[in-house]
Design a protein around this nucleic acid. Structure first.
Lengths: 226, 226
DNA sequence: GAGAGATTTGACCAAATGGTCAAGATGTAA
DNA sequence: TTACATCTTGACCATTTGGTCAAATCTCTC
C-alpha cells in the first residue's frame, strides 16, 4: 500500500509514516494551528498555512487532501491535550489540593497554548461541527465521572454543597477566558498570561475565589477578613 | 447633504435617516449580527447577509459601503448593550445585592443575545482589531471605577479581600461561557440558557459560588454545610 | 401628477482561493 | 548505481466573493 523512498517498505517509518511525512505533517499542523486560531476556519487560507509551514500549497495538499482535512487534523491534534487535565482529579485526594492543581494546570496549559485554546473555542462557538460527537460521548462521560467525585466530597462534608457541573463550567470558563480574551485582559491590566508574575497572580486569584466559593479555606489566606 | 424622497429635506427623518433607511439599516444589522456571529467575519458573506435581510446585495451595499463597514456597525450596535450592565454597580448599595444583580443581568443578557455575545467574543479573540481602542479607553476607565467600588467594600469590611479586577474577569468569563459555549453546555447537560429553568439554576449556581467566594452569605443557603 | 432625488436591482468585473495535474526532483533499498 | 516510489512544484482551472455601475422603479414634495 504505502512504501517509501525505494522498493521495499518496512523501514524509516514512525507509525506508518516516513520521516519526511512525519516532519511535514507536523510542520503543517503547527502552521495550521496558528492560522486557524488567528483567523478562524474561513479566514485562514491554504496558501498561508503552506507558506508558514515552508512549502508550496501543492505540497501541502499532497499531505492533506483538503482544507477541511487540515482543520480536522489540527483539532484532533490538540483535543487530547485540551481535555486531559480533568482526568487527573483524584477522588482519594484532598479536595483543596486536587482542585487547586486542576485550576493551576488549566491556567498553565492555557498560557502555554493560547492558540489551541482559541482554536477550540472557535470550534465550539460555531456549533462544534467537528467535535460535537466527542463532546457528547467522551467529554460527557468524563464530566459525569468527575461530577461523581465532587459529589462524594460533598457527601463526605469536605466541601460545600454546590452543583458539580456548574463548578466545572466555572473553572473552564475562567481559565479559558484568560487565554482567549488575552487582548482584553492586556488592554485592561497591561499584562497577560505570558507574564509570569501575572500568571501566578491569576492562578492565586482564581483558586482563592473558587476554593472559598465551595467552602474551603485557602492556604496562606486569613479565614475571616472581618 | 442628504435629502430624501422629494425635494425639500427636513421630514420623515429619524436622526437624519429616512424611514426607509432606518428600517433597512436595522434589517441589515440584524442579519449581519446573525451571520457574523455564526461564521465569523470571513465566513460570513455579503450576499447571505443581504438575503437574510430580504434585499439584494447591491442594495445592501447602497446602505453600507463595504463588508467591513457592516461589521463595524454591527459591532458598535451591540457594544453599548454589552458593556452597560457594569455601569449599574452602585457603591452605596449592598454588595451582595449589587453583585447578584450584576451577575443575573449578565446571564440574562447573554441568554437573550447569544449572537451578540459570540460576535463580541469572536472580535476579541481575533485581537479586537475594531474595538481595541474602546477597550483601552472606555472599558478601562469603567473597570477602574468599578474596581474602586469593590475596593471600598473591602475597606469597609463588607466583603473578603479579593482582587477586584480578577473578580470582574471571573464574572465576565462565567457569564459569557454559558452563552458562547452553549453547544458544549447542551451536549453535557442536555439544556442551555434558552431553557428558563436551566437559566435560573445557572444564575443561582454562579451567584452562590461567587458571593461565597468573596465571603458573603448567600440568601436562602445554609452558611455552614458541615 | 410632475419632477427630483432616493431606492432597488441585475449585469458585470477583478481578485482571491480551494483544488487538480503532469512533470520533474529526490531519497532509498538493493 | 539503478530502479522505483516518494516528494515537490508551477501552471492551470472553476468557483466564490466583494464591489461597481448604469438603468430602472419608487417616494415624496409641491
Amino acid at each position: 500500500m504505502a512504501s517509501h523512498g525505494g522498493q521495499t517498505p518496512e523501514k524509516n517509518k514512525i507509525g506508518g509514516l516516513s520521516r519526511i511525512q512525519e516532519k511535514n505533517r507536523n510542520l503543517i499542523l503547527d502552521a495550521a494551528l496558528g492560522e486557524f486560531s488567528k483567523l478562524g476556519y474561513s479566514g485562514a487560507t491554504v496558501e498561508r498555512i503552506a507558506a508558514e509551514a515552508g512549502m508550496s500549497k501543492s505540497n501541502l495538499l499532497y499531505y492533506f487532501s483538503s482544507k477541511g482535512a487540515i482543520y480536522t487534523a489540527a483539532l484532533a491534534h490538540i483535543l487530547d491535550v485540551w481535555l486531559a487535565p480533568l482526568k487527573t482529579l483524584d477522588p482519594e485526594g484532598d479536595p483543596a489540593q486536587e482542585l487547586s492543581d486542576y485550576i493551576r494546570q488549566k491556567i498553565e496549559i492555557s498560557a502555554e497554548n493560547p492558540q489551541a485554546s482559541r482554536l477550540f473555542a472557535n470550534e465550539v462557538m460555531q456549533g462544534a461541527p467537528q467535535i460535537l460527537p466527542i463532546l457528547e460521548t467522551d467529554l460527557k462521560r468524563l464530566v459525569s465521572e468527575k461530577s461523581k467525585v465532587i459529589r462524594s466530597w460533598i457527601a463526605a462534608g469536605k466541601i460545600r454543597e454546590v452543583d458539580p457541573v456548574h463548578l466545572i463550567f466555572t473553572i473552564w470558563a475562567t481559565t479559558q477566558h484568560y487565554a482567549d480574551f488575552s487582548i482584553q485582559i492586556k488592554a485592561l491590566t497591561g499584562k497577560d498570561l505570558s507574564d509570569e508574575d501575572f500568571k501566578l497572580e491569576t492562578e492565586q486569584a482564581v483558586i482563592s475565589l473558587i476554593l472559598t466559593g465551595i467552602g474551603l479555606a485557602v492556604p496562606g489566606e486569613p479565614v475571616h477578613p472581618k
